[in-house]
Design a protein around this nucleic acid. Structure first.
Lengths: 197, 197
DNA sequence: AGCGTCGTCTGAGCAATGCTTAGATTGTGT
DNA sequence: ACACAATCTAAGCATTGCTCAGACGACGCT
């Protein structure tokens, strides 16, 4: 009767690696993530992870995919409480900023070059598109007569504004000088201007 | 009489390394950049670069600093042709997108985690702030009665929108599905809405 | 039950990288 | 002329990503 520890076959290595990777990224950022360290955490030899991921970039792509999944569910929950449309957008903005700020290192992972390279996008882009559709749906509720193409344009500019502000002020080059100069309110107001146009 | 090649002292190693690093990043992206490779290009031993940069991150920070400098001069040139204010903003947007798209790998470098970490920001943030001030100045020309704080808010949202769109559509997770769905015109229109509010 | 197959894991190994150190070389200022 | 400081070399250490031959074990088939 094996004690479930130290079996020759780990049994759930893949998810164990993903879990350890997620924790590492949230704590220390992508740059601190190494395949061998993950193997060490999982009590497994350095070559074992390669039976579950082709290379390190594939692991990162999977992490990013999960990140966009989590973002999508947050956006979904924010607007499903069907209050009035304008309040819905407000809650959407709040949910996005809350997600980005609750684990900034993970949020930053979603946009690093290793994840946005073509091979990784095969895995990541579908989930990113799902996020875009979620925004588009919310805008559709607010303006039922608008055509889908313009709704998508509005969703893109909305997402662009939100990501741009987070990228500049929370995790980007202006974090030190201007931290929290732009609060949720400003972002929400600007988002409104874009969404209602 | 030495032939200027293969001197024991290189003479201009620092700038040679920066130049080689810039070329490498523009061609292959940050992930392809290595200190030892730069040393090889400069015909120098692997340890030599460490007399000019504390570590790899410092080299990256210098590159990013130069990137923001280049962006600032582009923004400056765009609006100095003093036409009417609304056209000025349009040219500003065009200049920004042109800069980002002319060397996307270099643009992406400006926002990677290695550059946005606190130590690197000591070097990078001042130049990023200079870019922000440039945008703020352009908006001031367009609306002379606006207060500086609101001008800075507008500059931030403008920059956020531009960077967000570039980050999502040109170098980010939506590049494949939506490349050039949002063209310069859409970005300019949205930027207008924000700037004029 | 016995057997074979296939997916999983090991362990050794290779090339490359970031960074450090001791010492050689050269230019500079007094 | 001489000491000093800056620059460069060469060797080396620890770590990483990735590969490969082979050990191990769960599972299905006869």
């Amino acid at each position: 009767m094996p004690t479930k520890e130290q079996n020759y076959h780990h049994g759930a290595l893949r998810s164990a690696l993903l879990e350890a990777a997620l924790a590492t990224v949230e704590r220390d950022g992508v740059e601190a993530l190494s395949f061998r360290q993950l193997a060490r955490i999982a009590n497994v030899s350095p070559g074992a992870p390669y039976h579950h991921f082709r290379d390190k970039n594939e692991l990162l792509a999977m992490l990013a995919r999960r990140g966009f999944e989590a973002l999508e569910t947050e956006l979904e929950r924010a607007c499903s409480a069907g209050s009035d449309p304008v309040n819905c957008i407000h809650q959407l903005v709040e949910a996005y900023l809350r997600f980005a700020r609750s684990s900034p290192k993970l949020y930053a992972l979603l946009f690093i070059p290793e994840v946005t390279r073509p091979e990784s996008l095969d895995v990541v882009e579908p989930q990113a598109m799902a996020c875009l559709r979620r925004l588009q749906a919310a805008l559709a509720v607010m303006d039922p007569v608008a055509e889908p193409p313009v709704l998508r344009e509005r969703a893109l500019t909305l997402w662009g504004l939100l990501h741009g502000l987070v990228s500049l002020l929370d995790i980007g080059p202006l974090t030190r000088s201007l931290s929290s100069v732009v609060d949720t309110e400003l972002a929400a107001r600007s988002a409104m201007k874009l969404a209602l146009a």
